[in-house]
């Protein structure tokens, strides 16, 4: 119990003193996860609209499949990315194994299903008459998709928050394709896991608090955005 308490105090110290190592790790985490969430959103917003607004055979099945992938274990994504990008893999030539770039790519794949699925359901929550209204006032398909996404902005932002949360909190993928290299691919989750195994609980707790604080700030920021 005293260990936790002293860990807590030390954590506050580390944060207030803006400890360079801690800040570097937190910054890296934030950068990788924000980038992957942005990229995944850029892919998912149009893709979800395309799936939602078009009628095609197997649509229901596709959506069920996407929803099944919500529970894709991070290590499985890690495994696939590893196989594809390792030296001997088909994309080994890119030579991006154990780099932040590959961590971003991995996270994009990881959160793609949940982002896509949740945005599709967000669009499904918009009343049909609103879509008719957009078309009846001369919107092109693209313009209609934009206004309907705006209409669903609360649920869309919630989906993006979910995606970001999954990205910043995962550890399996980050270790497998990032390698937890100090000063290069070390992020909050991998650092916590390492420091804990070394018995450095104070540092772990400090990093854990920062992780939560980042999640909170991103949440608040996105919620602000959503009010507009």
């Amino acid at each position: 119990m005293t260990e936790i308490w002293s860990g807590f105090v030390r954590a506050i110290e580390l944060i207030i003193s803006l400890d360079p190592e801690v800040m570097e790790i937190a910054g890296k985490s934030l950068m990788i996860s924000v980038t992957s969430t942005l990229l995944a959103s850029l892919i998912c917003l149009p893709l979800a609209s395309l799936i939602h607004f078009n009628r095609f055979v197997g649509k229901r099945l596709l959506i069920n499949f996407i929803q099944t992938l919500y529970s894709l274990p991070t290590v499985v994504v890690g495994l696939f990315v590893f196989v594809f990008f390792s030296r001997a893999g088909p994309l080994g030539g890119l030579d991006i194994m154990f780099t932040p770039t590959l961590m971003v790519i991995g996270q994009v794949f990881l959160i793609l299903p949940i982002l896509l699925g949740l945005i599709i359901s967000a669009l499904g929550g918009v009343d049909r008459p609103l879509i008719d209204t957009a078309f009846s006032l001369g919107a092109s398909s693209f313009q209609a998709a934009v206004i309907i996404l705006r209409e669903a902005r609360y649920a869309v932002v919630a989906a993006i928050i979910m995606g970001f949360s999954r990205a910043i909190s995962e550890v399996g993928l980050a270790i497998m394709v990032g390698g937890n290299i100090k000063g290069f691919t070390r992020v909050l989750t991998t650092a916590i896991s390492l420091e804990t195994s070394k018995g450095e609980l104070e540092l772990s707790i400090a990093l854990g608090i920062i992780l939560l604080a980042i999640a909170l700030i991103v949440n608040l920021a996105l919620n602000r955005l959503q009010q507009r």
Partner: peptide, 24 residues
């Protein structure tokens, strides 16, 4: 332009609702 039987408005300002057809 078509005014539907059940009038629905976008969850936007009155101004934006009226402007959307022109913007498009």
């Amino acid at each position: 332009a078509f005014v539907l039987q059940k009038p629905v408005v976008f969850n936007l300002s009155v101004y934006d609702n009226i402007a959307c057809g022109l913007r498009w």
